[in-house]
Design a protein around this nucleic acid. Structure first.
Lengths: 222, 222
DNA sequence: CATCTTGTAACTGTATACAGTATGCAGCTG
DNA sequence: CAGCTGCATACTGTATACAGTTACAAGATG
């Protein structure tokens, strides 16, 4: 008998990773902050071992950096990293959509529903979750799962920036119109136009965050 | 005084990760094999803790998979994964080269030297190392380091396949001619032609490995 | 004889204990 | 008083111990 495909992974490490990831994304663990393993492990009610495994993974994801004998630090939000990470998805997502091909009617319906949900969100958290859900639904038929996983990783890496912007400036990033452009192109059966619209969408969030980061950076410099 | 940029990381975990990565790449740990943590830790002369941290990282890199209460398995070589991973670099590398721009004369000289070195290699190991070195030198000026790191990760992920092919079929993948095409385009100051040549190079290694994998797959099925 | 049961061994996941290294302060020295 | 030195403390990195789960096999049962 073959091993089952699904990988359960219901271990404490995973739960801890999820929780700590959330702490980082929501800035409960502030950018630049040094992580005290003992304190955090006590706070989470687990021992240091699973915590360290989680921290390790988060470091691999790019949310933390680690320095020998100094421990883990929450990666600060920098303009450089943001621009670099943000520049990559426009290379990947359109290709993934191309590979996925035109969606079935059923999927297009779902996409529109998700977009309405996005329009109705009230909190930054929900907005970003809905946006990510829309993008993943769009690529659900993409046969290159490695590519999609890569995209998911990049999503998580930019999430902190988007959340921080929305939290600190009370600005809201709404991509519903962009998404509608993609819907229209897909409904017309024009995959290339959809890809172009998607690429535009993936770049449209950039400017406000860059502005905010540069403002913040020059402020902290002075 | 500011902390120094370089992150030393001279810990046992890292050493172990490197060693285990090598064991996997060279198939000393065979594809599909289950990893016995106790045995391996004894073999490496360390305790289970740093070994597990290393295994965790390798799982994040995609060389291992982990199943709860069953442990880590060396990821088998599959046609699907190979095709998916291999399809990504042609999306990333040309863009990275575009961002890097035309290389200075000095760098072009180095690239040619590395390519000669590649031509002179005798073992599969050396060939792949030299090839990777050439590609990284080509992107040395790329300001998007995140992009380059992504590319490095993909390199490591395909390395196993290339090595396995060379080992099992005694076939040698030589990309020196492809690289020369890139050199010529760069010397002509034609960045786009260089990108096109690079993209071709990144796809030219695909066919032999696909052939070998399909042959192997149908063989093991029967 | 096939099938289920049960007990044991092996292994992973987690907690704890220990060792080595950095940090910060008190006291000394010039 | 500035700067260095040495010690105490805190924290990370590693090893070991313990707990829970799975796999396997011998024996019981129809």
């Amino acid at each position: 008998m073959q091993l089952p495909q699904p990988i359960p992974r219901a271990t404490t490490s995973d739960a801890v990773a999820t929780r700590v990831r959330h702490l980082i994304i929501t800035a409960a663990l502030a950018p630049g902050e040094r992580i005290n393993e003992v304190r955090l492990s006590v706070h989470l009610g687990v021992s240091r071992t699973p915590l360290r495994e989680a921290l390790n993974r988060l470091a691999a994801e790019g949310a933390l950096t680690s320095v020998t004998n100094h421990g883990y630090f929450v990666r600060p939000l920098t303009l450089d990293e943001f621009e670099q990470v943000y520049a990559i998805r426009p290379l990947l997502d359109p290709e993934a959509l191309r590979l996925a091909g035109l969606p079935a009617a059923r999927r297009l319906t779902r996409l529109k529903a998700l977009n309405r949900k996005l329009a109705d969100t009230t909190t930054a958290d929900d907005a970003i979750a809905a946006d990510d859900a829309w993008h993943l639904e769009l690529l659900a038929d993409c046969p290159n799962r490695v590519l999609v996983e890569l995209i998911e990783g990049l999503m998580q890496r930019t999430r902190r920036y988007e959340l921080a912007l929305m939290r600190e400036t009370r600005q809201v990033l709404r991509a519903t119109d962009d998404h509608d452009q993609v819907h229209k192109a897909l409904a017309d059966g024009d995959l290339e136009r959809a890809c172009a619209a998607l690429e535009h969408n993936l770049q449209s969030g950039r400017a406000p965050i860059v502005d905010w980061l540069t403002a913040r950076q020059t402020k902290t410099e002075g």
